[in-house]
C-alpha cells in the first residue's frame, strides 16, 4: 500500500504556483481610552446576554449575591489560583452556597462536575472590547471544563487587561512567541443555539448564564 502522506504531498507539489508573499495583515486595533474599552466591552457582551458588573475587593460578595438570586447551591473554583484564595477568604461562612475546590482530574470527579455542580468560577487573561469576548487561558491550576460544564459561569476580569481587538491581543501578548496553552479560548456570552427556527435558546450545552466581574484599578479608579 502506498503512503498517503507522500502521495498527497507529491500531488500538491506537481503544480508549482508562484510563491506568494505573506499577505499584508496590519494589526487591527483602536486607540480607545481604558474607559471606552470597558464600555464597549460591556455593550458588546450585553448584546449576547453576558452580564457585566463592576466590582472591587468585595467581588466574592457580589458573586455570592448573584448566585443566591439564581438558587445555586454550590460553586466550583480553582483553589490554587490567586482568585481562589481571595474567594475563600471573603466567602460568607456557613451559608447556603458551598465552595467546591476543583482539585481532582476529571476522571474522578466527572459525575460531580456534570451532575452536581451549579456554578463555576474562572479568571481570564483579559478581554476584547470590540466583540465583548473573554480570553481564557486554562492552566494546570484552572482546568478547561470549569468554564463549560456548570450552568452558571462567573469570570473575574481586570479592566486593565481589556484590549481593543482579538488581533491586537494576540500580537501584543506575543502568543506565538510565548507558546499557546493546550486550549486557548474566547468566550463571548453564554452558550446558545439558533438551530430551531433560527430562534435563540440559551444554555444548550454550556452555561446558560455568564457573569463578568470587572475589577477596576488605578487608571480607572472612580471612573464608573
Amino acid at each position: 500500500m502506498s503512503d498517503p502522506r507522500a502521495a498527497i504531498l507529491s500531488r500538491l507539489r506537481a503544480r508549482h504556483p508562484a510563491a506568494r508573499p505573506l499577505p499584508e495583515n496590519p494589526v487591527r486595533r483602536f486607540d480607545w481610552s481604558p474607559q471606552e474599552r470597558l464600555s464597549r466591552f460591556r455593550e458588546a457582551l450585553a448584546a449576547v446576554r453576558g452580564e457585566v458588573v463592576l466590582v472591587d475587593e468585595d467581588w466574592p460578595l457580589r458573586l455570592f449575591a448573584w448566585l443566591r438570586a439564581r438558587g445555586a447551591n454550590n460553586l466550583r473554583y480553582a483553589p490554587a489560583t490567586e482568585l481562589g484564595q481571595e474567594l475563600e477568604q471573603a466567602w460568607p461562612d456557613g451559608e447556603a452556597i458551598r465552595l467546591m475546590p476543583h482539585r481532582e482530574p476529571v476522571e474522578t470527579c466527572r459525575q460531580e462536575l456534570f451532575a452536581n455542580t451549579d456554578a463555576g468560577l474562572t479568571g481570564c487573561l483579559g478581554a476584547i472590547a470590540e466583540t465583548g469576548s473573554l480570553v481564557l487561558w486554562p492552566s494546570v491550576q484552572e482546568p478547561r471544563l470549569l468554564s463549560l460544564v456548570p450552568p452558571l459561569h462567573a469570570v473575574v476580569l481586570d479592566a486593565r487587561n481589556i484590549r481593543s481587538t482579538f488581533h491586537e491581543f494576540l500580537v501584543a501578548e506575543d502568543w506565538v512567541g510565548q507558546g499557546l496553552p493546550t486550549n486557548a479560548l474566547l468566550i463571548t456570552g453564554p452558550s446558545k443555539s439558533a438551530d430551531i427556527e433560527q430562534t435563540l435558546a440559551y444554555g444548550v450545552h454550556g452555561p446558560k448564564e455568564l457573569l463578568v466581574l470587572v475589577r477596576q484599578d488605578l487608571g480607572l479608579a472612580g471612573g464608573a
Binding site: A44, V48, F166, L185, L186, T188
Partner: peptide, 8 residues
C-alpha cells in the same frame, strides 16, 4: 461579530 466560543 464572533461566535460564543472560539476554541484553539
Amino acid at each position: 461579530p464572533i461566535t460564543t466560543y472560539v476554541n484553539m
